[in-house]
Amino acid sequence: MGFRLSVVLFFLLSGIASISQTDTGKETYTKMLKVQNNIYVLQSDGGNIGLSFGKDGIFMVDDFFSGNVEQMQKEIKKISDKPVRFVVNTHFHNDHSGGNPILAKEGATIFSHELVRERLMKVMNEGAKKLSEDLLPMVTFEEKINFYFNNEKIVVFHVPNAHTDGDVMVYFTQSNVLQTGDVFVNGQYPFIDLKNGGSVKGYEAGIQKALALINQQTKIIPGHGPISTYKELENNLRLLSVTYKKVTQQVLLGKTEDEVANMKELTDTYNESGYKPGYVTADDFIRTLYKDASSGSSEKKERLKENEDARKKYEQIKRQQESKKKKKN
C-alpha cells in the first residue's frame, strides 16, 4: 500500500503529535512533520528521526531508544505500509541507535560509520545487561556512502571527531534536506562527547563542512530540536566559536575549571539567542569547552607556558616602570 493521501494532506497543514506509553509504563511523545517533498521528521523525547517515503520503501536516519520503537512504527504506518529497508545511525548513542535490534529483526539493513560499530561492540562487551548482536550495524564505511532510493541520491558522509568520533550527516540531494545527527542540536547547548572522540575543533569543522555542501534553501533536521535553517546552523557555529575563544583565553590566563564555569557571562551569547539547557546544561557546556581547550596536546601546553612566561615578563616590566616613576617623584 502506498501513501495515504488524506493523511499526507493533513500533514501538509500541521504536524500530528501522539502521546503513548511504552511497555515499561513510561510516557513517550512523538510528532510527525513533513520537511520537504517525501522527507519527514518524527520528533520524540529520543531526538529526531529522518524518514524518506516512496516506491522503494522507507529510508530511516536514526531510530530512537528501543522503548520508543513501537510508537515510532505506529506513526510511520499512518503514512506508509512499506517496510523500513535501510537505517543509518548518525552515531552510536542509545537515543539514536537503540531501535537497531528490533528493526534489524524485521528486515532492515543497518548502516553506520565503522567507528559506530566498534563503539557499539564495546557497549555490548562491557555492559552488565546482555544485548542482542542485532544492535550492530551490518554495513559500515569510512568516509562516504551513496544511496539511490525513492528517486533520490542520498549522500551519507563522515564528520570526524565532532560530537563523537563516528558521526555522519545525511544529505537528501533532490529534496535539499540535511540531517546532522547531534553535530547540531537546535536551540540547546551542544554536547561534545570528549570521552568518545568528540572535540570542539571537529564539531566546528563538521558544521563548516555541512554549510559548504548546502545552501540558503536547505531544510535541516537537527539531532534534537525543531527543523532548522542554514542561518540557524551558521549562527550555531558562530556561538560555539565565540564562546570557545573566550574560554580558551581564560585557560591561557591560568584560570581553573571551576573559576571559568562560574563566569556566567560566557554563555550570554547563547542566552541572547534563546538557547536553553537540553541534555547539556550551561555549566556542563563550559566545562566541556574548558577541558577541550586545556587538554593534551604539547602545542597547547607550549602555548600555556609561553603565555605564562609572557605574563611574568609583563609584570616584571610593569614593576620596573612603576619603580622608576617613584624614584623620579
Rank of each mutant, 00 (worst) to 15 (best):
T140E: 05
D165T: 11
M124A: 13
F149R: 01
E142I: 12
Y148H: 10
G47Y: 04
D167V: 07
D45M: 07
P83M: 14
V116K: 02
N48P: 08
G166N: 03
L131Q: 07
S112C: 05
R85I: 15
L136V: 08
K144T: 15
K82C: 08
K144E: 15
E118S: 15
V156R: 01
S80K: 02
K77L: 09
V139I: 12
A108W: 02
F65M: 12
E118P: 11
K122G: 11
N68P: 00
M121C: 14
T109Y: 09
E142W: 10
I102N: 09
A108G: 03
K105M: 12
M138S: 08
T109C: 08
I79M: 08
I154S: 06
E106I: 07
D165V: 10
F147A: 00
E152H: 01
E70P: 09
F92A: 14
D63W: 08
L51W: 03
E142V: 14
V69I: 14
R119C: 09
F157A: 05
L115H: 07
D62W: 04
H93E: 14
L42S: 04
F157V: 00
S52F: 01
N89I: 13
E143N: 10
Q73W: 10
F141K: 04
M72C: 15
H158W: 13
E106H: 08
N48K: 04
V123E: 15
N146F: 14
V123F: 11
I154M: 04
I110H: 02
E106W: 10
N151T: 08
D167P: 02
M124L: 14
V87Q: 03
G99E: 03
N94E: 08
V159D: 04
Q43H: 05
D95W: 09
Y148A: 06
A128R: 09
F149D: 01
N100V: 07
T109M: 06
S44P: 06
G107E: 05
N151D: 15
V168L: 06
G57R: 00
N68W: 12
Y148N: 11
S97C: 12
G98V: 05
G47T: 05
L135V: 04
F92E: 00
E114Q: 15
D56H: 03
H158P: 06
L51Q: 05
F65L: 06
A162D: 01
L131M: 13
G46N: 01
Q43E: 14
F111A: 00
L131C: 10
